[in-house]
Design a protein around this nucleic acid. Structure first.
Lengths: 102, 102
DNA sequence: ACATATAATCGTAAAAATGCGATAAAAAAA
DNA sequence: TTTTTTTATCGCATTTTTACGATTATATGT
């Protein structure tokens, strides 16, 4: 890994990092992530219940988080059960560590 | 530090984390940070030169990065010399590590 | 088949972010 | 003092994001 004199990320990785950062930088989406940390496997409706926004808005935020890599959704009947995407989250944390270090 | 069953961050810390994430999630600002990594101490004009946006727009992005904690500016004559804010960056990286771990 | 439950998508309105040129401010140089 | 250099701020236009209700889609239950 390159870390002595330049950020050690490929162009694709940078894009992904930006996308995840952008998704994280919204208070509603941040709240969703916090909730999923304590309530893994909960369904969309559960998340709607604890947020100050509508079902459709929540659904859009979940889509942004999923596309960015923060969460994963599993269809369970008519519902969708969401969990944190541990792989991408760990990658994000590692990449942040590597991004701007001396 | 709390990490067994909940994100170990205070409300203030969460706000700061969100602000830093939001600032990072913009391609122009991301580019500025990458540039400052390789060119610490450079002045606003140097940054303007490598960006596809105007001086006034660059100045606004620098303000966002400074307010969020990513960079610091030091007045040097009529110019302002910018560096990465290592303290806040390290804090961000640590907080990201702690935020959503099992 | 019909009704119910759950979530996603569509269309659109409101709010926020981004961008620019012009101008102001402040220090340095002439 | 006047001019130059450099950056910040103002006013405004454009684009993007956020939000909502209404509708659609899909699976489940009756």
């Amino acid at each position: 890994m390159i870390s002595c004199c330049s950020p050690g990320l490929s162009s694709e990785e940078e894009k992904k990092l930006q996308k995840m950062a952008h998704a994280l930088g919204n208070p509603v989406r941040f709240e969703i992530l916090k909730f999923l940390f304590t309530q893994p496997g909960c369904i969309t409706g559960d998340i709607v219940d604890i947020l100050p926004v509508s079902q459709s808005t929540t659904s859009q935020h979940l889509k942004v988080l999923k596309d960015a890599g923060w969460i994963e959704g599993e269809v369970a009947g008519t519902a969708v059960s969401y969990c944190l995407n541990q792989r991408d989250i760990s990658w994000f944390q590692e990449s942040m560590k590597d991004l701007l270090k001396d």
